[in-house]
Amino acid sequence: MSTDPTAVTEEPARLLVGATEVARYVVDPALDARHGPRPYLHPVRTLGGTVVTDALPADHVWHLGASLAVQDVDGVNLWGGRTYVRDVGYTWRDDHGRIVHTGWSRRSADLLAHQAEWRDPHGRVLLTERRRLAASAVTPDVWRLDLDSALTAPPDRSVRLGSPATNGRPGGAGYGGFFWRAAADGEPTVCTADAAGEEAVNGSTAPWLALAGIGPGGGAYTLVFAGLGPGDRWFVRTAMYPGVCAAFAFDRPAEIPAGTTRHGRYQVWIADGALPPDRCATLASDRRS
């Protein structure tokens, strides 16, 4: 199948702030199963036009802009790429599922809402999801993305969420959840209110996290993330690649009990320019709907 990020079977939806397109939402990408096909946002732009996401990069082809993705959902890889196997390491396996868009409940310029199914390689439904994405203006140089997700387990079985870290990989590789692969020319900077740098920030539970970089066209930008849920932690990479994840299973597996729903609400402030930490904190303090 195609690995072209523009190859889809349904046209991408658009998110606008006023008359400005700030993101495209690809709900049905025509991708190889090994890339973890799933709905994703790309390109996401600042109000000034700087692209702040990357999709299918050469270093990790399965990184798809901004998306929800987990490497271990009851043993099914819904992240893409190789699977980390305890005492073995990363291994190519035929365990790739897909997150399938099953219908829209609302589409407007600033709000997208739909349903999806998290499926195993044979099409069995592992989880059902209701998802809502909204774009809103904050200031002339900042807009906010809100992503709400409700993941529901089947009535007859619980669902376990894991990561390479919970499967034995050392080094704080607890990724899997709401993941943002950033676009950056050079290594970006990352900070929270009381820490700076990848090593200090990775694994933290800070209420907000900011990543600042230079986009592919030379424009400076800042992304401010908030929305960790109970048990979540920040997974961060800046040296190997630029990425931030609100990780569900950073150092221990998470579980969605049978018939119950895991709710997540994530906010990202997308700003032109390099914002100082005090302004990042001010933005993150306003989490009104």
Rank of each mutant, 00 (worst) to 15 (best):
R132V: 13
V125F: 06
S105H: 12
P164N: 05
G89A: 02
E129S: 06
G75V: 03
A150W: 12
G81N: 01
W180T: 10
V159L: 11
L111Y: 10
D87M: 03
S149R: 15
V88C: 03
V76R: 06
V85E: 13
G103M: 06
G176K: 07
V85T: 11
G174P: 06
D156L: 05
Y90T: 04
V73W: 03
R181V: 06
G75Q: 06
A182W: 11
N77M: 02
G177K: 04
A135F: 08
S158C: 02
D72K: 00
A113H: 02
G186M: 06
T128E: 14
V73I: 13
R181F: 06
R106K: 15
T189M: 04
L145H: 13
R86E: 15
V159T: 12
G177Q: 05
A153Q: 10
A183D: 13
T166N: 06
L133C: 04
P154S: 07
T83E: 11
L147T: 12
R107T: 12
D87K: 09
H101A: 10
F178W: 14
V138K: 00
A137H: 12
N77G: 03
P121K: 00
G103D: 10
V138Q: 11
A184W: 09
E129H: 10
I99C: 03
G75A: 04
T189D: 14
G81K: 02
S163D: 12
Y175R: 04
G80R: 04
N77K: 02
G80I: 07
T83A: 11
R160W: 11
A109T: 09
H96M: 04
G177S: 07
R119S: 02
D148E: 15
G97D: 12
T152Y: 08
V85L: 13
S158L: 01
Y175E: 07
V85K: 05
P140W: 09
R160F: 07
S136L: 10
L126P: 01
D185C: 00
R82I: 00
G162E: 03
V88H: 09
S149L: 15
Y175Q: 01
H114A: 11
T91K: 12
W118K: 06
G172M: 11
L78N: 05
V142Q: 09
V100Y: 08
R131V: 12
R98H: 12
D146L: 14
P140A: 10
W92R: 11
N167H: 15
Y84I: 01
H101F: 15
G172Y: 11
G89L: 05
W79F: 07
R93I: 06
G186C: 09
R93C: 10
G103T: 09
R169W: 00
D148T: 15
W92Y: 12
T83C: 00
S149E: 15
E117T: 08
R86C: 05
D72W: 14
A182R: 05
G176N: 06
L111P: 00
